[in-house]
């Protein structure tokens, strides 16, 4: 186990290095740059633009900029936002709680409902319930989330007046009930799509398992149907699902671009949209690196957990 972990960590470091080089290069190769924000400002002259470019170091060759940036990253200096002048580390860290709150709650809810629907649909294959959930899942996956978001705002905020139209809490703060009220709508919108995914995954995994010999054996032993289904069936079906969950972990931190924008949710997704729009390189690179780190860790966690729930898999061979 220890050797496996060391090995994987070594690979991860190389991977992150590669991601940083490619990410940095792509960002600078892409047309446009942070100076457009200055050009758009009518009080800024071309002279000002040249001066600011020099001040940001953007007039240097890209590899020089990369070495400076990477050196800073390694020594804990993530740099400063071009537009806010604040340390990038703080800018990114202060957005993580909001994203964790939204993504965590909607993923937990979606896992619970999605797995329940998937199991039921697998057991009652080709029933009305199966067809109804399949149709709902298709709808949820094909319609864009911003549409669901605006629909929710239209009904629950504008028409009925039950829920706020956006934000993480009332201005000035309003305690736990207020925060839950703000969380409800974006959480449901995001969960809706996730439930659709999870119920489909679970259904197909369960159908595979239900046909296995050991399920028949379990039934033959005289175990209760619930025990057979959950103890033997679901446990085995969870193995591929854990891998999928691990792959979704980055979203837990990365946030949801569209949903966060529609609901004014002050998380990473919204930060990324803004930083991308202004080409705030230091902020974008920090988000990219945090994202890459979480992807690497998510995969690692998925591997370890898979081994824990499935004794057939040995990490040493992974």
């Amino acid at each position: 186990m220890a050797r496996f972990l060391l090995n994987r960590l070594g690979q991860s470091v190389l991977l992150l290095l590669g991601v940083s080089v490619i990410g940095f290069a792509l960002m600078h190769l892409a047309p446009g740059g942070p100076m457009a924000v200055y050009t758009l400002n009518p009080t800024v002259t071309a002279q000002d633009i040249e001066r600011v470019k020099h001040q940001f170091g953007l007039d240097q060759p890209v590899y020089v900029q990369y070495v400076k940036w990477a050196g800073g990253m390694l020594t804990g200096h993530w740099g400063y936002s071009f537009f806010g002048g604040r340390p990038v580390g703080i800018i990114v860290l202060e957005r993580i709680p909001a994203t964790l709150e939204l993504m965590g709650s909607s993923m937990a809810l979606a896992l619970f409902i999605g797995i329940a629907i998937g199991v039921l649909a697998a057991v009652r294959r080709n029933s009305v319930f199966d067809y109804a959930t399949a149709t709902a899942a298709m709808l949820a996956l094909s319609l864009p989330t911003f549409w669901f978001g605006l629909l929710g705002i239209f009904f629950f905020a504008q028409t009925l007046g039950w829920l706020p139209a956006g934000g993480i809490e009332s201005t000035g703060g309003g305690g736990l009930p207020d925060r839950l009220q703000h969380l409800l709508l974006p959480m449901l919108v995001l969960a809706f799509v996730l439930v659709a995914k999870w119920s489909r995954y679970t259904r197909s995994a369960m159908i595979d398992i239900l046909g296995q010999d050991y399920m028949r054996t379990a039934r033959a032993k005289g175990l209760s149907p619930a025990r057979v289904l959950l103890g033997h069936g679901l446990r085995a079906a969870l193995v591929p699902l854990v891998t999928l969950a691990g792959l979704q972990l980055p979203e837990l931190v990365g946030g949801a671009l569209v949903t966060e924008t529609v609901f004014s949710w002050p998380g990473m997704g919204l930060l990324f949209v803004n930083a991308l729009g202004t080409r705030d390189y230091p902020v974008l690179m920090a988000i990219l690196m945090v994202g890459a780190l979480v992807v690497v860790l998510g995969n690692l966690v998925a591997d370890v957990v898979t081994a824990l729930i499935d004794p057939r898999i040995k990490l040493a061979h992974a």
Binding site: V37, L40, N41, T145, E251, G254, G255, A256, L257, V258, T259, T261, G269, F272, V273, N274, L276, G277, T278, G291
Partner: peptide, 11 residues
């Protein structure tokens, strides 16, 4: 990151 890229906000 989830979902598609939004257009940039402008100035």
């Amino acid at each position: 990151m989830a979902e598609g890229e939004l257009e940039m906000s402008e100035n």
